[in-house]
């Protein structure tokens, strides 16, 4: 990979890697995303924070094509995700198009979602072999390397059920990285973990994101991690980005009353 420096949020790049333009998502009467605009530059690490039910996870799920959008446009590297260009018109995407676009994305789930019937090794190699057509040898050497990076080289032949939550999530991260995605999506990766296991997972995310110069979009409740890790923090409320800026700015000098309120509630809970 090239050694470009991550773009800082105030110098907007010519073409963002991910762009949401006026994206709306409704379930019946309920509006989850409301005219959302969001750009993520290549190599940028963006964290989404906000109260539950604010639509944070929906952003990731729509991007991963797990849920459809109601209105608006999402582009990855200039190419529409949910649409295809036919002439100068935009048509709903075919399954083939969605598959092509999905290949650029990787996702880490809150509940890990490892395949319980496969060994750790198989969890990592199955998709590269079946979907990317890698040879067994290629897939295994890639898996060995990644398992070493996440500190689980000794656990390759265990089943997910034999691992701790923190270990499972590290496998989840390695599994997503096996596909060499351009953008990594983390959907509350530590919310399901016991408190003492959170650190090991965040450490792995941080190391790998730096090493692989990943573009990251993460939803999290770990405020101190968001502050140290992100290039930009977006505060979500009621399906919109209520406020965004550098971690310094958001955490020390939030402009909006709603942001201040949320951060106070999270950082200094009234006991």
């Amino acid at each position: 990979m090239s050694s470009q420096t991550p773009a800082s949020p105030d110098q907007t790049p010519a073409r963002p890697l991910v762009r949401f333009s006026k994206v709306t998502k409704r379930y019946g009467e309920h509006t989850v995303l409301d005219d959302l605009d969001l750009d993520v530059a290549a190599g940028e690490k963006v964290t989404i924070i906000g109260p539950s039910g604010s639509g944070k996870s929906t952003v990731l799920r729509i991007l991963m094509t797990l849920e459809t959008l109601t209105d608006g446009l999402i582009e990855i590297d200039g190419e529409p995700l949910w649409h295809e260009r036919r002439g100068d018109q935009l048509k709903p995407a075919s399954e083939a198009h969605l598959r092509k676009m999905r290949g650029q994305l990787g996702m880490v789930f809150q509940q890990f979602n490892l395949f319980p019937h496969m060994s750790v090794q198989r969890n990592l190699t199955e998709a590269p072999r079946q979907v990317l057509g890698l040879s067994r040898k290629e897939a295994q050497s890639r898996a060995t390397e990644l398992l070493e990076r996440v500190g689980l080289a000794d656990h390759a032949n265990k089943y997910p059920g034999q691992l701790s939550g923190g270990q499972q999530q590290r496998v989840g991260i390695a599994r997503a990285l096996m596909m060499r995605p351009r953008v990594m999506l983390f959907d509350e990766p530590t919310s399901a973990l016991d408190p003492e296991l959170v650190g090991e997972v965040l450490h792995v995310i941080r190391t790998l994101a730096d090493e692989h110069d990943l573009t990251v979009l993460m939803v999290t409740h770990e405020m101190s991690f968001a502050r140290r890790f992100s290039d930009r923090v977006c505060f979500f409320d009621k399906g919109r980005i209520h406020e965004q800026g550098t971690p310094e700015q958001i955490f020390t000098d939030p402009r909006e009353a709603r942001t201040r309120e949320f951060l106070r509630a999270v950082l200094e809970p009234d006991v």
Binding site: M64, L66, R99, R102, F109, N113
Partner: peptide, 8 residues
């Protein structure tokens, strides 16, 4: 969903 995210 995990399978779809891995593009199976």
């Amino acid at each position: 969903e995990a399978a779809q995210a891995l593009n199976f």
